[in-house]
Design a binder for these strands. Structure first.
Lengths: 346, 346
DNA sequence: TTGTACGCGTTATCAA
DNA sequence: TTGATAACGCGTACAA
């Protein structure tokens, strides 16, 4: 049986109230009793009961995280960063993976609501009316990390400008002499990584008077596998593009592998660019040209946003001596273009 | 303010006890009151308070998971499977990623202890005296999924025979004419994926009267990056091996990329084998020959082990009409050898 | 079949 | 500076 406050009180010869005061250190207490309590607590291996604690405090020092899946290594990296930041601020994080299943999201968000978590960070972009309702009835602040869900209450979104970044990437291809450029999009119900990246692609074509060829646009689901399949599809048609823009690095590597299997050289026959700058995009051969977003910044801002959400009416958040304004419940963060070896220059 | 049992009771005109009875459905209650309670609960969007609930029940229907990092995709796959199995059994899972940091493990295990979780699944193999003490003082059952920590109380371990599997893999290389075989080990403090796989390698050499060349044994940390570096190291020496056995697929792919960068053809100049059969080992070029372990079986047995741990003295666990005996607190599961295109046959 | 009242372990209030 | 005690929200003996 685990020791309770009462046991510590008995052992140290003071009241439960004093024990609580010592352990939570808010008010002043006699140094002697303090030492006795501390000693007793240690000896009894006392551990506060989280359930009882949050029942009265309505606070848990726990942050909940909803992640759509664990296959995507950008998400993994982001989770790691968030954990670090949270740890530094004295918060623990709990990760719930919903396997792209909104029913599970609802289940876990309700679990979080029952647990008195202090904030929620969501990396999942899909939503339906039911999950929206549950999210909107949360009593804690919600941060959308690298995703955008419109019309969510009590919530802000942190993102790079995915349209602009994608446009820049495709413009880079065009500048290097490519005109027949295919795209493997993500799931278009995902705004930022799906629709916006497609938007950027279309805009770049438009800016350069290149007409859109629907046959060159395929959709995947952000996995290596889907990039592979989409590329086999693209390369089995008559019109072979000279370049492929995949909406994430996993799909870009899948695309490259498919091209290789079909006997194409990358980048000499087919150039490929990705998005996210995941670890292995650097290590793949050829190394993938891509867009990087700083998980450090996202993670830190996400945490700051939650911590500062009590003092509402915040109009900006500071990180590393830089101010990030909050406009329309959104924070825009910078991205970087990373040139590597997966694009041929004509 | 969220609705409480009392609110539901008031609205439906019965007592709190009756509401509780309806919502937990253990004892019989008048059908009419039942309907009224259900309607009221729904209308008020009633959600039980987890903290209060587990405070009295000393049970949460939550399973805790400790994972060393989220970079390794075998772990990701395993997590996904565990989630599925848990969901089917009515359990929610909470994942805590400790970033290879035992202090964090202690912190999270203590959090779990405070939360009345019903069981813990650990995917982390490292341990020290402090974390061992905390794990040993847990009041819930612990399952070691695909890891082995010796002398842990109240705990069983589920594993393939890593020694045997590694030995088989290296024997396959030898049978195909390789004799100068390098190995990139994992971190050797990890028993199963570190030491045991090295043991298997050494045993295979011994069985075939091949003397051990220490220069051909490098250690990595299960990442693509470390496999890459180790291989550059190996291939910069005088004695170039014809094959490399990497202790996991990530490192195998890192090894292959390094070899390619140095101008070697894989598998014609250098053959490479991995371990774990992660998704991308199939999609990499060349596709990696490897050992597969079924996350399905591991996840399911882990769950069964926790659920059945109350009725102790269990000597075996059933899954898919097959009995898995528990011997010395260990369950051995089968592995499969997966031949692909990363090995040259002389 | 139903309701009253107590206990779960903790913190906060109020007197002392 | 301390101690008794009332919450927090729920489940369940026990009594009715």
């Amino acid at each position: 049986m685990r020791a309770k406050v009462k046991d510590v009180a008995n052992k140290s010869g003071v009241s439960m109230a004093t024990v609580s005061r010592v352990l939570n250190g808010n008010t002043r207490v006699n140094e002697k009793s303090k030492q006795r309590v501390l000693a007793a607590a240690k000896e009894l291996d006392y551990l506060p009961n989280q359930a009882a604690r949050s029942l009265v405090l309505k606070k848990s020092n726990i942050l909940g995280i909803i992640v759509p899946n664990l296959e995507n290594s950008f998400n993994s990296k982001l989770l790691a960063t968030i954990e670090e930041e949270a740890d530094r601020e004295g918060y623990k994080i709990i990760i719930c993976c919903i396997q792209e299943n909104l029913e599970k999201e609802i289940k876990y968000v309700n679990l979080f609501r029952q647990m008195y978590i202090d904030g929620l960070i969501i990396l999942n972009e899909k939503i339906n009316s039911k999950s929206r309702k549950v999210l909107n009835s949360c009593e804690f602040p919600i941060v959308q990390a690298s995703v955008l869900i419109k019309g969510l209450k009590n919530s802000i979104s942190i993102n790079v400008d995915n349209r602009k970044a994608s446009c820049e990437l495709v413009n880079y291809l065009i500048k290097n002499g490519h005109r027949d450029i295919a795209m493997i999009t993500g799931n278009l119900v995902d705004q930022t990584s799906g629709q916006f990246r497609l938007d950027g692609y279309l805009q770049a074509l438009k800016e350069n008077d290149i007409s859109v060829n629907e046959n060159l646009i395929k959709s995947g689901n952000f996995t290596f596998d889907s990039g592979y399949k989409a590329t086999k599809d693209i390369l089995s048609k008559k019109e072979i593009p000279t370049a492929i823009f995949a909406a994430c690095d996993e799909m870009a590597m899948g695309a490259a592998s498919a091209a290789l299997d079909l006997g194409y050289n990358v980048p000499n026959d087919i150039s490929i660019v990705g998005f996210d700058n995941i670890e292995s995009s650097r290590m793949y051969r050829p190394a993938i040209t891509t867009i990087g977003q700083s998980t450090k910044i996202i993670g830190n801002l996400a945490l700051m946003a939650i911590l500062q959400s009590k003092n509402n009416a915040k109009t900006s958040i500071e990180f590393n001596n830089r101010q990030y304004p909050i406009i329309d419940n959104k924070i825009e963060i910078p991205y970087i273009f990373i040139e590597r070896n997966s694009v041929k220059k004509f």
